[in-house]
Computed example of a mutant assay.
Amino acid sequence: MNLQSIGWNEQLEQEFKQLNDQHCLAVGRVATQHRNLYEIWTEKGKVTGNVSGKLRYQAETKSMFPVVGDWVAISMHEGEERATIQAILQRKSQFSRKVAGDTTEEQVISANVDTVFLVSALNQDFNVRRIERYLVLAWESGANPVIVLNKADLADDLEDKRQDVEAIAFGVPIIFVSCVTKQGFDDLQNYMQKGETVSLIGSSGVGKSSIVNMLTGEEKQQVQDIREDDHKGRHTTTHRELILLESGLIMDTPGMREIQLWGDEASVHSAFDDISELSSMCKFNDCQHQNEPGCAVRQAIEEGVVSGERYESYLKLQREMVYLADKKAYLQQVKERSRQIKKTIRKSRKYK
């Protein structure tokens, strides 16, 4: 397998040379993950790998384990199609969210993605507030977002939908797609480039697997019929997977039931750059956008330039990020105290 065709480049080569000073390691890219086992693409073909004990010990959080899309340094098992993952090369992008539930921990969904298709369906799944949340995660990831509105054949108000999305996604490409009529197929293909990775992110049933099949030209992914009661597709993708095409790479992912944010306020500002720009035009630097004179944000809302719903969404996501930052800081303090206590205990034992 040619490494350049799956995204290998000079920067990765230089990093790997520094890491592989003993010339005993090979390199590969994680294509599929099944719990603790990974399918890895290498120059010599596919191998099955697991994480070394050292890497497992050094990983303080789950985000430090390999994910689909990662480039990894591996030691091969001679005479076998097996390998051990010794290190993860630096990620140029990673799509993350907070794990579900009350635990404050990062879950990395994918790595080293160039373009992310944020897929929504144009029937009952269509929700601009959800698209806003996806955009926050996309800007935080480092990948370039493209909004893909699927099932265009089921909607008759496409121009209204376009205006709704354009109002919350300035400068982000918007593509209408139908896997029935093949609408939007050529537009999606334009983002497929050799050595580059396109990931599909979206809720369950929005048609990501159907889009993958449309791009590959064959039934790479299993799909199920649309439910009659709500016109939603049934969830079919069960794991993240890289698919290699002549024109590039596609990463299919399971549907996201919860869009828990992970990142900082900067990613919110990127997704709401219209409100951020208006804030800079307020008369006072510390304007709270309430009743202050010369508030550009309030004026834009009153004039209908910015909808009240969008502003409320901005405030909600900003509060989430502030709360997340506070939780991260608190957990870091707890972790640091734990380290100091363990260090003190080791010292006391040493001198007994």
Rank of each mutant, 00 (worst) to 15 (best):
A59H: 05
L245P: 06
V306T: 06
V68G: 06
L3D: 02
K316F: 15
L249D: 00
Q183P: 11
N9K: 03
I250V: 08
Q18A: 09
R310Q: 12
G308F: 05
I175T: 06
L278F: 13
S93E: 02
I345E: 13
K352T: 04
L331M: 09
N213E: 10
V306I: 15
S276A: 14
L89Q: 11
V108C: 04
S178N: 12
V128K: 02
V30G: 03
S307E: 07
Q163I: 04
V198L: 09
K46F: 07
L118V: 02
G207I: 02
G45L: 05
K283E: 08
L317P: 13
K343C: 01
T344N: 12
H289P: 13
N2C: 12
P145V: 13
S210R: 02
K335H: 15
I168A: 03
H34C: 09
V119Q: 06
P293E: 07
R319M: 14
E246V: 04
T237I: 15
I6A: 01
V47I: 06
F65C: 11
G171M: 12
T197A: 07
P145N: 09
V268L: 01
G79Y: 04
V148G: 10
Q124M: 10
R133H: 01
L137R: 07
E312R: 13
G142V: 06
K151A: 10
A31T: 11
T103M: 13
D160S: 12
R339A: 05
M64A: 11
T103H: 07
Q340A: 08
V212G: 12
L19R: 00
T197F: 01
W8K: 12
T236F: 08
R227D: 10
P293A: 12
T48A: 10
G69Q: 07
E140T: 02
Q189C: 07
D229M: 05
K232T: 14
T32W: 01
G142K: 01
K62Y: 08
Q222I: 12
E246Y: 00
G233W: 02
F117R: 02
P145K: 13
H269P: 01
G205K: 01
R91C: 09
K347T: 03
Y314W: 09
